[in-house]
Amino acid sequence: MSAPIDHGGGVTAAAAAFGGRPKNWLDLSTGINPCPVALPEIPTRAWHRLPDSYLVDAARRAARDYYDSGEILPLPVAGTQSVIQLLPRLLRQRSQFAMTDDKVAVTDDKVAVVSPTYGEYARAFASAGFAVDAVDDIAAIGGQHRLAVVVNPNNPDGRVWPAEALAALHDRMKSANGLLVVDEAFGDTDPALSLAARAQELPNLIIFRSFGKFFGLAGLRLGFAIAPEDILARFEDWLGPWAVSGPALSLAASLLRSDVAAIRRCLDDRSAALQAALSAAGLRIKGGTALFTLVADIRASDIYTHLCRHHILVRKFDYAPDWLRFGLTPDPAADNRLSAALQGFER
């Protein structure tokens, strides 16, 4: 088993190292809407009883309409991390490869992950004994790869691939009996990038969608998988009964049918304010999405420490020591707090 990956959101550890109470820190280390939506009423029965099929069905129908997935009813999961960890099992089953003696077996099947990106994909496959090729472009994915992962828009640099290019990649993978996984966790702010509307025409495609990032409810631990029915049935079986809580399903059914235009406008405003603060501090913006901004600076490590001393947490990267990722600030007061801290950094 490889070492755990250091993700964003570690305010408690940062406060232990730099002082202050975690609740008083400004956490900009994640790509989550900092202005969570107002919660609709959750029926008491959703809390009181195990999640019955009517709740699952309502959430799936709402997700189908929201993601425009046609005849495919997206499968609700307890955060997309829960199904990322099932991908090696799926690939092994498709390859009719068995593990023995409770040891990690090594297979000749190769997996391509367009990198750098969310690290749990490579970790999951490597821990299961698969060879993982970190490729820098979808053009580098070939017939030797049994599965390919593309995060679109990408985390942490915001790189995007047009839907047509990914559909063509799917066809290449399909011709070699391979699978394409497209992670659209940050796709809500730009629906035109999504392949969901074409998913029923692309039988070797798996799409993962995050719920909590866009709606600002990451603690709910909810996501959706869009894939052919046989793959969704395997995921559902492997996840076991009651994989998603009743309150989460109830919220999904309500919020996915709500008007999200105001959320997008809010995120655009917050993103503009963040980029203005970063530019005013002389930081070079390398990329990002409406939910985060990536900067590149040779002083990144010192800036990170300086911000921590001001009880502001951002995301640093061991594989790119000159990168820092800034999540959105929640309001103008936080904009001013970040700007003051950045202006106080000694250049």
Results as ranks from 00 to 15, higher is better:
residue 298 I to E: 15
residue 256 L to T: 02
residue 66 Y to A: 14
residue 131 A to C: 13
residue 99 M to P: 01
residue 288 G to N: 06
residue 315 R to H: 14
residue 176 A to Y: 09
residue 332 P to C: 04
residue 235 F to Q: 01
residue 276 A to D: 14
residue 203 P to C: 03
residue 343 Q to R: 15
residue 133 D to Q: 04
residue 197 A to K: 13
residue 317 F to G: 10
residue 242 W to C: 12
residue 38 A to R: 13
residue 198 R to M: 10
residue 99 M to Q: 13
residue 104 V to R: 13
residue 282 G to R: 05
residue 34 P to Q: 10
residue 12 T to M: 09
residue 87 L to K: 00
residue 112 A to I: 05
residue 30 T to M: 13
residue 292 F to W: 11
residue 278 L to Q: 07
residue 344 G to Y: 10
residue 165 A to S: 15
residue 227 A to M: 00
residue 310 H to A: 14
residue 216 G to Y: 08
residue 115 S to L: 01
residue 71 E to G: 12
residue 179 L to T: 02
residue 173 M to W: 07
residue 255 L to A: 02
residue 218 A to K: 14
residue 251 L to V: 06
residue 21 R to Y: 07
residue 177 N to G: 09
residue 292 F to E: 01
residue 139 A to C: 10
residue 295 V to C: 14
residue 104 V to A: 12
residue 67 Y to W: 06
residue 191 P to T: 08
residue 156 P to S: 08
residue 253 A to Y: 08
residue 26 L to F: 11
residue 137 D to P: 05
residue 32 I to K: 02
residue 265 R to S: 14
residue 35 C to T: 15
residue 110 K to V: 12
residue 219 G to Y: 07
residue 246 G to V: 07
residue 131 A to V: 12
residue 2 S to W: 05
residue 42 I to M: 04
residue 250 S to C: 12
residue 316 K to D: 15
residue 261 A to W: 06
residue 146 R to T: 07
residue 5 I to S: 11
residue 197 A to I: 03
residue 210 S to T: 01
residue 137 D to S: 15
residue 255 L to W: 05
residue 93 Q to W: 09
residue 241 P to Q: 06
residue 330 P to L: 11
residue 198 R to H: 11
residue 175 S to E: 12
residue 310 H to E: 13
residue 308 C to M: 13
residue 270 R to K: 14
residue 217 L to I: 03
residue 39 L to V: 08
residue 17 A to P: 01
residue 59 A to M: 08
residue 164 E to F: 01
residue 31 G to Q: 03
residue 254 S to Y: 00
residue 150 V to L: 06
residue 103 K to H: 11
residue 281 A to C: 08
residue 213 K to D: 15
residue 78 A to T: 09
residue 110 K to E: 12
residue 141 I to S: 04
residue 285 I to T: 10
residue 338 L to P: 09
residue 68 D to P: 00
residue 235 F to W: 09
residue 237 D to K: 15
residue 17 A to V: 09
residue 179 L to I: 11
residue 303 I to C: 09
residue 86 L to D: 00
residue 297 D to P: 04
residue 347 R to N: 11
residue 45 R to P: 01
residue 268 D to H: 12
residue 345 F to W: 13
residue 296 A to L: 12
residue 171 D to R: 15
residue 153 P to T: 05
residue 211 F to H: 03
residue 121 Y to F: 15
residue 319 Y to K: 08
residue 238 W to D: 10
residue 155 N to R: 03
residue 139 A to H: 12
residue 341 A to M: 10
residue 252 A to V: 07
residue 108 D to K: 14
residue 25 W to K: 07
residue 235 F to D: 03
residue 232 L to P: 02
residue 195 L to C: 06
residue 262 A to I: 04
residue 30 T to H: 01
residue 25 W to C: 05
residue 251 L to K: 03
residue 329 T to M: 15
residue 5 I to P: 01
residue 316 K to L: 01
residue 199 A to N: 02
residue 274 L to V: 07
residue 335 D to T: 15
residue 290 A to D: 12
residue 106 V to N: 05
